[in-house]
Write a protein that binds this DNA or RNA. Sequence first.
DNA 1: GTATGTTTTATACACCCGTTTGAAACGTTT
DNA 2: AAACGTTTCAAACGGGTGTATAAAACATAC
Lengths: 226, 226
Amino acid sequence: MSTQSAVATQPDTKQRILDAAERLFAHEGYNNTSLRAITGEADVNLAAVNYHFGSKEALLEAVFQRRLVPLNQVRRERLEAVREASQREGRPPGARETLAAFIEPTLAFRESAAGAGEFSNLVGRAIIDPDDTVRKIFLHHIEPIFQLLFDTLREALPDLPPEKLFWRVQFSLGAMGHTIHMRATGDDAQKNGKFKCLPHGIISSCDAASMTDMLLTFITAGMEAP
Amino acid sequence: MSTQSAVATQPDTKQRILDAAERLFAHEGYNNTSLRAITGEADVNLAAVNYHFGSKEALLEAVFQRRLVPLNQVRRERLEAVREASQREGRPPGARETLAAFIEPTLAFRESAAGAGEFSNLVGRAIIDPDDTVRKIFLHHIEPIFQLLFDTLREALPDLPPEKLFWRVQFSLGAMGHTIHMRATGDDAQKNGKFKCLPHGIISSCDAASMTDMLLTFITAGMEAP
DNA sequence: GTATGTTTTATACACCCGTTTGAAACGTTT
DNA sequence: AAACGTTTCAAACGGGTGTATAAAACATAC
């Protein structure tokens, strides 16, 4: 009785907190985002976070939970589709299609749910974030699907020793996380000259689709290297 | 008169602060390291940092300065050696030797100066650190040598459009930074189960030399992809 | 309309941060 | 020994943090 009315009653404050937290965590990082900034942006009282979620860390957990569960389900389905196709046709799965099954949903997801774009930035940040809190929570959520990716890649590249495969996957994650993060902070940074590294200052193909294509080409080649 | 005696007199406190800061910045990150932690580890008074360096940010700058200037000189020499050899022999420079000229000195440097190992961890962190303070100072130091790397790679891969080259270099930096950071925090993390991602829990070839070799193989293949 | 449970609000708490200050300790020079 | 510039020290400042609390506002049920 209490729970029912509660769920029906609470209009959006929990949602608004999640949205604001997602955006700020992705943009500023977990440690650099204060609860006051979140509640200010969400236009709710400061104490609302601790009331609805318990703590700042639990809020981060909830932010991940909301998006990562459906996202991982899509990844799982695509990865298993790759495996089944390979078994049906009696060939090992392709490295690129395996990696794409893991990476592309993040992109597609980006344009599906409104505001989910911020989340994929958060994921990119979470992969490489030096902070332990973020990594710990994120890894816990992604571990099973990561295992499936690893297993499928083992079939795709049977000649590669598992240790090497492990590190090559890490290389790929690093490249992916760094790139997403650059894109995330780069939108406003382009004007501030953050991309000075590029000699002649022109970055044309910065859209998500071509980025993913470039990234996949890069890490697939690295993965298939002798 | 004042400066001379000052340089001769001050025994080691500036040095000790630099060492402690280097270690802690590399291990915990810039934002997560307090001046009290640094001065505590260096066994100096809290005010010593602001007295000798002016501010926490200036201390970070000094930490980079101390190691990055000689390191970049080595990188520059090696990159120019690659270019001269290619010109002398009338062939384009090799992608791998170019990348090695940039990456390997960090490794060699690691085993040269005592305690410099911490620094290469800091560099790895700086590459991917989402925090603006760290990135800004680091990029400022590395920009000229980065430009040289880029130009040499342009010669090594003349058919690759500059935009693609730019992003592939970014992929490489991301892979490199993430890997160094994993190694840095992984030493004690291995016991704490941080490497759960690896299925059967065995990470044998984790030494710096074979890591560098694997990384170079990976990013060279990615760089040379069609 | 009163009672009950849920949510919001304002305020306060304890803690940690980077930085500043003014006096004490030190070493060197005259 | 006296004077001076340099370095150390303990203490405090102002500000920001996550969290806790008690009263107020609200919605629902009897």
